[in-house]
Design a protein around this nucleic acid. Structure first.
Lengths: 256, 256
DNA sequence: ATAAATATTCCTCATTGTGTAACAGGAGTT
DNA sequence: AACTCCTGTTACACAATGAGGAATATTTAT
């Protein structure tokens, strides 16, 4: 499993293509010059890229503003659907949201980071700026830690090497040794806690989803304001609720 | 509004990049030679593309199989979130699914075709192979016709020119004149019907979502097996239910 | 009406992607 | 084990192609 930072023979235009689309996302829509400045490219180049992308249907042009097109949703939704985990888990995630009233997330690991497959909001759910398709550092969240707790140590090491352990709040675990201790604890108790490690005032619980009791497929988490997430509810009731849902999911995974 | 089939100076590599990813989707994962044959490209080229795409995080490699990566979901979900229509409509779509028990869809137009923003299944919902992110011909579905019914005639003409009127079932409207008559009827009655025009045995109703009572933003449809979709339910109850939901949505759209 | 932004087109040269062909590694067969 | 027949990967050299500068249109603002 080669881990080179660069491809041997990178297709430059392929990379710039995506850099441009990503710029469009970052800037939330932009004109040609804006993109050109943002990426230090010539206006004419950017123009050619955006023009071809538009003809391919991957970007939209409204007036003089270019935008990321919904055709990416076609590919993205396909990639998500391919993971049987999503199809199987969605109803359970919805049920959990109804029952608890909080925010429930389904997350998987890809390329050493976590990505949300879906999120359901219960009636009391807090507003969060995160959502479907977003990438997060695994060590900063409950579900991320839950997933790592069931990976090989070397795998976790390589992820840390690749992405580091950047902090997001004062509580984020940024120390390698400390993280591994936490992962051991999680492995023992079967669930992970997020004590405002991702966002101040937000806590959560997460349980990993295992295939055949061995490989981690993803994790489900429930998150809410710290005031509602404590004591028995945080450490007993909610973990058990998720565990029940996960049991159902795991049954369906192995039998398909 | 130029409608040239090709960009003036197309970036070839940009196009092949997407052709490769699309091939990966069509083949539902593939190896290098498979892709190369499928697209009449040299193995080495495909290898270079897939390698860079992998390093960019847009494709995944499992063993010798390459797959569309979830990073597309990041862009796709963003593009969807950008449309305020989605955020506003989602709860209404869910409510409709609960109330009717059928399949409820939210669709918008992009590039002259229809694309599903979301789908919610009620308890009695039929199984459908379509889903989020999928593109469909507008004239083949109830929501598509509902959308076209509120476009300028010339706009509809140009869409037909671009995509034609291919049939999907024996009932699909394939005649230009017939389609325009149908669109007039829809405009008058305020809702559109799909009488097995997309899939045999499947019927549906759709209501367009208007902004300020003028521009079409999208449409909501309810679909189900023909046996359950007839008479008063099809032509009265369901249209009214959707209309109510749409009213709520339209209110929220104009006030934001 | 003029100015100041854009976007778009034109054109040239060096870069970059392409295909051919050779190489390596694994699975299956005799 | 040696062989074949698949893969994926690397090397290389030629030609196509994308990049950038500058000129031109087009829109928007003053």
């Amino acid at each position: 499993m080669s881990q080179a930072k660069e491809a041997k023979h990178p297709i430059k235009s392929s990379r710039t293509t995506f850099r441009i689309v990503e710029a469009l996302k970052e800037l939330d829509g932009a004109g040609i010059t804006e993109v050109a400045n943002h990426l230090n490219l010539s206006k004419s180049s950017v123009h050619n890229y955006l023009d071809t992308l538009r003809h391919e249907g991957y970007v939209m042009k409204h007036g003089q503003q270019y935008h990321v097109g919904l055709k990416f949703l076609e590919l993205g939704a396909y990639a998500r659907r391919r993971r049987k985990l999503f199809e199987i888990s969605k109803p359970e995630v919805e049920r959990l949201a109804d029952e608890t009233g909080e925010v429930v997330n389904l997350l998987v690991e890809e390329q050493g980071k976590g990505i949300y497959l879906c999120r359901e909001k219960g009636t009391k759910a807090v507003k969060l700026d995160t959502s479907t398709g977003m990438f997060v550092h695994l060590h900063q969240t409950a579900f991320g830690k839950a997933i790592m707790a069931y990976m090989d140590r070397e795998q976790v090491e390589s992820i840390i090497d690749r992405h580091g352990l950047p902090a997001r709040t004062d509580n984020t675990i940024t120390d390698r040794k400390e993280l591994f201790e936490e992962l051991n604890r999680i492995h023992e108790q079967g669930y992970a806690l997020d004590m405002e490690e991702y966002l101040d005032g937000l806590q959560g619980v997460a349980v990993p989803i295992l295939n055949n009791g061995t490989t981690v497929e993803g994790a489900i988490s429930i998150a809410g304001p710290s005031c509602r997430m404590r004591g028995e509810r945080l450490e007993e009731t909610l973990p058990r609720k998720i565990q029940n849902a996960v049991n159902v999911i795991e049954l369906n995974i192995t039998h398909s």
